[in-house]
Amino acid sequence: MSYNELLNDQRWRTKRNQILVRDKHTCQRCGISPSSNFNATSFKLGTNFQTNFGIEYINEDSNTKIIRLVKNTGQEIICKTSLAEYQINLTTEYTILVNFAIKNFIKYPYNGATVNNLKDNIFISPGTNSALIKALEKHKSTLAIDLEGIWFVEKKNEEEFSKNSQALHVHHKCYRKNYEIWNQDDDDYVSLCNVCHQIVHINQLIPYYDEVGRIYQYMKPCPRCNGKRILECYKHVQNGICFQCKGEGVFMT
Rank of each mutant, 00 (worst) to 15 (best):
Q198K: 13
I32W: 00
V237H: 12
C242A: 12
Q204F: 03
L205T: 03
F161S: 02
C196E: 06
E158F: 07
G247C: 10
G213K: 00
V153K: 00
F53K: 02
E93Y: 12
C30V: 06
T51Y: 09
L192V: 12
K134S: 15
V200R: 01
I55T: 15
E160I: 05
C79R: 09
N4V: 09
Q50G: 03
H236S: 10
T51V: 02
E85M: 09
S82V: 04
W12I: 04
N39C: 12
H197N: 15
I88P: 03
Q87E: 15
N157V: 07
P109Y: 06
Y209S: 03
F105N: 12
R176H: 11
L7Q: 07
A40V: 01
K65Q: 11
N178E: 13
I241E: 11
R11I: 00
Q184L: 14
F53A: 05
L192C: 06
P34I: 01
Y94P: 01
C196R: 10
K155V: 05
N72F: 02
P221G: 07
D120A: 13
I88L: 15
P109I: 01
K103E: 12
T47I: 14
L168K: 05
G46F: 07
F49P: 00
G54L: 15
K235A: 14
Y110L: 07
L205K: 13
G127F: 08
N121C: 09
A144T: 06
F251C: 04
E60R: 14
I215C: 05
K65F: 07
T14Y: 10
N183K: 15
G213A: 09
G112L: 10
S36V: 06
Q204M: 14
I66Y: 08
K235M: 08
I122S: 08
F43T: 02
C233D: 04
A131M: 12
V237C: 10
V153Y: 01
K134F: 09
K228F: 04
Y218H: 14
R22N: 12
K246W: 00
F38R: 04
G127L: 11
H172G: 02
I206A: 02
G249R: 01
Y218P: 08
Y189I: 06
Y234I: 05
E60W: 00
S35L: 13
I77L: 12
N121Y: 10
W151P: 04
L97D: 02
Y3V: 10
G46L: 07
S130Y: 13
E158D: 07
Y189S: 04
S125L: 14
E85F: 07
N194M: 09
T26Q: 15
N8F: 01
K80M: 14
L118S: 10
Y110I: 05
Y175L: 13
V21S: 13
Y94I: 01
C233P: 00
